[in-house]
Design a protein around this nucleic acid. Structure first.
Length: 1017
RNA sequence: GCGAGGGUUGUCGAGUGGUCAAAGGCGCCGGACUUAAGAUCCGGUUCCGAAGGGAUUCGUGGGUUCAACUCCCACCCCUCGCACCA
């Protein structure tokens, strides 16, 4: 073996071997179970970076693990190039934009003489696809490269056309309007990088409720449409300018009164707006109108807190639930309103109308919170706080009251969309969008929300479509499981999505070729394309052959092979062969991705699969991983900082990079890439190699007829635990936990084994260790594996599984006694600051073990006894508890579980109570003869068992170790470690007076814990 | 604001009711080895302690329990997403 492990040389050696032997080119094999794993293909507007490294490495490690488990694994890769960023990058390069030139030469590592030549999108794609493939090879990904493609390949575009034709025919592509951030000056949508101020702004959807006075509508914008049932009056601000407008949409023609600012905003909605006249607020205040939800007659009152630039400038007053309204009414009751023709009675007679039931509040939550906080009036800053509190409480805990009719009992948090839709269909509501904060374009103009009309949409809001997606999701594994609710929320949240563009690279929309298909359409079902991409790349299939009958037959089993053959010109047998390959690989077994893609790629992946494919082809599992930052800083492709995959591998090597990125954080968490961390990973790899080299050179092997020693049995037992943990961790993609067990913990035990003089299991243990690490660090493991005398690639060697026959509880209990005893002696030496001349160990009296046994017996004899770790399981499977849990719902579940847990715990405790233990113990003459000493120990045992799990006690008793013997066996080791002689006495020798025990330490001996006396120099 | 995740010992992070002063890595300190450095190995790393012990800790404040890092309530803080951008 090499004296020092040469990373670069060894890694490229194995990569070359893998490539030449084509071991990762996956073809269907009948009788062998397949595993199809995909990760989202990278977008090629830069080099692969640390974020890609993490996601792709997770995919590769799973692929390698599954391969070692015996699956036929397909791990393919393609390149995403559609959309605007690549076009934008080409523009920036052509313009020699300084930031871009700097970032792409210095951080993306593009040579200075090459970058300026990448001035067209196609050149950028051609450059980066080569770079990306190179990078993925030098890090050792086990990809089947015969299946690569880019989304601008003509054949792939035919595939996308086919997808959209099918979606269109199913009625899932529709025309409609949607709101965008818009600059009135540029007369264009503003993208995020065009925004000067308000980048964080989001579109807020208000419900507009139409209050009517004769033929004039006063539309109120609200985020809480349910409160319309509690409206007592409307508010207008006498200081604000109002206008009357003629509003037209579809067949509708209405007259609205809104603030002047609202008028400006309405111009960009899908209404036709015609200015009629200016209105004077004073003339409007006092008017009576009808609440469209309740038909109550209410009045318009003056309010200074109403802002013209917020919503429509017309505000509903809900004093029961809105502190401002409550306060304003209270303030108003003291004022003279005769100038508006409003009598004092009219104001004073207004009573809050409760709409929402909230726990802990009565009829008027707003009034209660106002009183609680001591808010003085509507100008008091505390009014804002009161509003927040009421809002939060009502939103989370509130339900609707009888007054809302058919909505009675519904939670406030769920009602908004339904109510808005119902109001719209009844002609009393509308939707109105507004920014969450002002947005200013780079040109200086304030932006508006513009409703773009006549746009093509994917009809994601379609309830039947959503239901199928829910169904699909419910049958899938989601890893980690917390993300399931995230997916459910996003499915719920998803509305129709514009799917056509005019800019960027892309495929023409077949139903309307003036448009390009939005680029996310490429990343929905392309995994199916991988299953035939090798035939496209080798020229068997040309783009012209990608006809609809062919693809329908191939992927959807629609039509016949003959039709498919006739339209494509392909041989029918060949078509059937491809079809069987597709059927072999599909569905996708797992799709693993960064969490940023949850609300888009991953969601659309599900939508498009359920829309097009048969249920048997729906994906099986989703895995989601966190981001990567660099030394605490967020990465940015276009501005930096960024660390490319290639740079990482060039500096540290593939194995180190792989191991580091997967051990830096657990899957769902964000990882921070730190130089310090990866450098330590590098030394770990070196340590691994050095250790294995020593083992190989020493040639230790279990002798044919050799008996295993205690320490051999111990290491074999320990290794089984790590094997089990690693497998469990793999199945839930806990890569960090897997590496902890497969590398660090195992290594620490191997060191201990070595230190204890173990050697005959070393080769066996090191082989297991190598196999466990092979998915993470495949190059060094291949190298070591061949050094260990194997000729086959480790990539297909069966992954270790737990061998229960090798678990040896007695060996572990015995070894723990030795470890603990050594630690105790060392601690005494340290604390007492003594230099030991000789160490004496005294094992315990049999009668103490007897007491321990009696305590355990008492506990175990009880019918109610449940070992601690079983308690939780027992509760979860108790049908009575589950029933009541389902009935009571929510947090009450936990109360029940808690009660039950208490009962069980109580039972265990009561059954090893002191009294019973004393009685049973004292019935035994051996113990009784010990008198007070015996009683004292009974007390202690009862206490210990009560205060902790008795599992440890049980395993000690089960192991039934001879302490004297195991200590004698470890004596040479202890003497070596302590650097002085060690002598061990058992209780019989002590009783017989044959033990040296000048300080009577032997009486402190307990089961599993020998007493210690250290003689000083 | 809404949704999701998270706040643990110098640091990165395990840990979901008892065996927890709390795994493992890193850093730091000390020792062994070495001509030396690195690597490697051993020990320590909250505080106190001349015998294996004790005290105080896990965002903040309350609560439940014989027992809480772990359960409940309230609050504070951090990260991500909120749409036509991939």
């Amino acid at each position: 073996m090499q004296e020092d492990y040469n990373i670069q040389e060894t890694e490229s050696k194995w990569q070359e071997k893998w490539r030449i032997e084509k071991i990762f080119e996956a073809n269907p094999e009948s009788g062998k179970e397949k595993y199809f794993i995909t990760i989202p293909f990278p977008y090629l507007n830069g080099n692969l970076h640390a974020g890609h490294t993490r996601t792709f490495t997770i995919g590769d490690v799973i692929a390698r693990y599954k391969r070692m488990q015996g699956y036929n694994v397909l791990y393919p890769m393609g390149f995403h190039v559609t959309g605007t960023p690549i076009v934008g990058l080409a523009d920036l390069i052509r313009e020699q934009d300084p930031t871009t030139m700097k970032v792409y030469t210095e951080l993306h590592g593009i040579p200075k003489n090459i970058l300026p030549t990448l001035d067209e999108p196609e050149k950028i794609v051609d450059y980066f696809k080569v770079e990306a493939e190179y990078a993925m090879n030098i890090i050792g990904y086990s990809i089947d490269w015969r299946r690569k493609f880019t989304t601008m390949d003509p054949a792939f575009q035919k595939f996308i056309e086919w997808q959209y034709n099918n979606l269109y025919d199913k009625g899932l592509i529709v025309k409609g309007s949607h709101p965008v951030k818009w600059c009135p000056h540029d007369n264009n949508p503003v993208e995020d990088h065009d925004i000067l101020r308000g980048e964080e702004a989001t579109l807020v959807e208000y419900t507009l409720i139409k209050f009517r006075h004769k033929d004039t509508i006063f539309p109120c914008a609200t985020l809480r449409p349910e409160t319309v049932y509690g409206v007592t009056n409307l508010w207008l601000n006498p200081e604000v300018s109002y206008v009357k407008l003629k509003m037209e949409k579809d067949e509708l023609e209405e007259y609205w009164v809104v603030s002047k600012e609202a008028y400006e905003k309405l111009l960009y909605t899908d209404w036709n707006v015609e200015f009629i006249e200016d209105m004077n607020a004073s003339d409007l205040i006092g008017l009576k109108l009808k609440n469209p939800a309740t038909d109550n007659i209410i009045q318009i009152l003056p309010a200074p807190f109403v802002r013209g630039n917020n919503g429509s400038g017309v505000v509903m007053s809900v004093p029961a639930h809105a502190p401002y309204d409550y306060l304003a009414l209270r303030d108003l009751a003291k004022q003279d309103l005769t100038e508006y023709g409003i009598t004092a009675d009219e104001v004073q007679n207004i009573k809050p109308i409760q709409v929402i039931d909230v726990p802990d509040y009565g009829e008027a939550p707003a009034a209660e919170v106002v009183a609680e906080l001591g808010v003085v009036d509507q100008k008091d800053p505390k009014a804002e706080e009161a509003t927040k509190i009421v809002y939060r409480r009502e939103f989370h805990g509130g339900t609707l009251k009888d007054i809302t009719g058919k909505y009675k009992g519904m939670p406030v948090s769920k009602i908004k969309d339904r109510l808005t839709q119902d109001f719209i269909s009844q002609g009393i509501g509308s939707i109105f969008y507004e920014f969450s904060e002002p947005v200013q374009c780079r040109c200086g103009t304030m932006c508006v929300v513009n409703m773009v009309k006549g746009q093509w949409f994917l009809n994601y809001s379609n309830p039947e479509w959503k239901d199928k997606v829910y169904k699909c999701l419910s049958q899938m594994d989601v890893i980690p499981p917390e993300f399931r609710v995230e997916f459910e929320n996003k499915i719920d949240w998803l509305k129709d999505k514009a799917c056509a563009r005019t800019k960027g690279l892309g495929t023409q929309l077949p139903c309307d070729p003036r448009w390009l298909i939005e680029s996310l359409g490429d990343s929905t079902i392309y995994m199916s394309y991988y299953t035939i991409a090798n035939y496209i790349n080798d020229g068997t299939i040309t783009p012209e052959m990608m006809t609809r009958p062919f693809l329908d037959y191939l992927f959807l089993d629609v039509g016949t092979a003959e039709d498919a053959a006739a339209s494509s010109g392909l041989n029918a047998d060949l078509i059937n062969k491809m079809k069987s390959e597709f059927n072999y690989w599909y569905p996708v077994d797992i799709r693993s991705s960064g969490k940023d893609l949850v609300p888009n790629h991953l969601l659309f992946f599900l939508f498009h699969h359920v829309a097009l494919f048969d249920e048997s082809k729906w994906p099986k599992a989703l895995a989601v991983n966190g981001f990567v930052s660099l030394e605490g800083q967020k990465m940015s492709k276009s501005k930096g900082p960024i660390l490319t995959l290639k740079e990482a591998v060039d500096t540290y090597g593939a194995d180190v990079t792989r191991m580091y990125i997967l051990s830096a954080a657990e899957q769902a968490q964000d990882a921070d890439w730190r130089k310090e961390g990866i450098e330590s990973a590098r030394t770990q790899i070196g340590r691994f190699y050095t250790f294995v080299r020593q083992v190989v050179e020493s040639g230790c092997k279990i002798p044919e007829n050799g008996d295993k020693t205690h320490i051999d049995r111990w290491i074999e037992s320990r290794i089984q635990q790590y094997i089990r943990e690693v497998n469990i961790a793999f199945d839930s993609i806990h890569t960090r936990h897997a590496i902890q067990n497969a590398f660090f913990l195992i290594y620490n035990d191997i060191k201990w084994y070595h230190r204890r003089g173990g050697e005959q299991c070393l080769t066996e243990v090191v082989e297991t260790w190598t196999k466990l690490m092979a998915p993470f660090t495949p190059h060094i493991c291949e190298e070591v594996w061949s050094e260990l005398g194997h000729t086959e690639s480790i990539a297909f060697v069966p992954y270790p599984t737990e061998n229960k026959a090798l678990i040896d509880e007695a060996a572990e209990v015995a070894e723990n006694i030795i470890i603990k005893t050594l630690e105790d002696v060392e601690e005494i030496i340290r604390v007492a600051k003594i230099t030991p001349k000789k160490v004496y160990l005294y094992t315990t009296h049999e009668w103490r073990t007897l007491i321990l046994r009696k305590a355990a017996e008492i506990a175990l004899a009880s019918d109610e006894f449940v070992p601690t770790e079983e308690i939780a399981k027992g509760i979860r499977t108790d049908p009575e508890i589950m029933d009541s849990a389902i009935e009571t719902m929510g947090h009450y579940v936990k109360e029940d579980v808690k009660e039950k847990a208490k009962e069980i715990t109580e039972a265990v405790r009561n059954h090893v109570d002191v009294k019973e233990l004393i009685q049973k113990s004292m019935a035994d003459p051996t113990i009784r003869s010990r008198g007070k000493e015996g009683q004292k120990y009974v007390q202690k045992v009862a206490n210990d068992i009560r205060g902790s799990s008795i599992d440890a006690v049980l395993s000690y008793l089960n192991a039934n170790v001879d302490e004297k013997q195991i200590l004698e066996e470890a004596k040479p080791f202890l003497e070596k470690e302590l650097g002085c002689p060690v002598e061990i006495f058992d209780a019989e020798e002590i009783d017989a007076g044959n033990a040296y025990d000048p300080e009577k330490k032997s009486r402190f001996a307990e089961p599993g814990r020998p007493a210690i006396y250290i003689e000083q120099e």
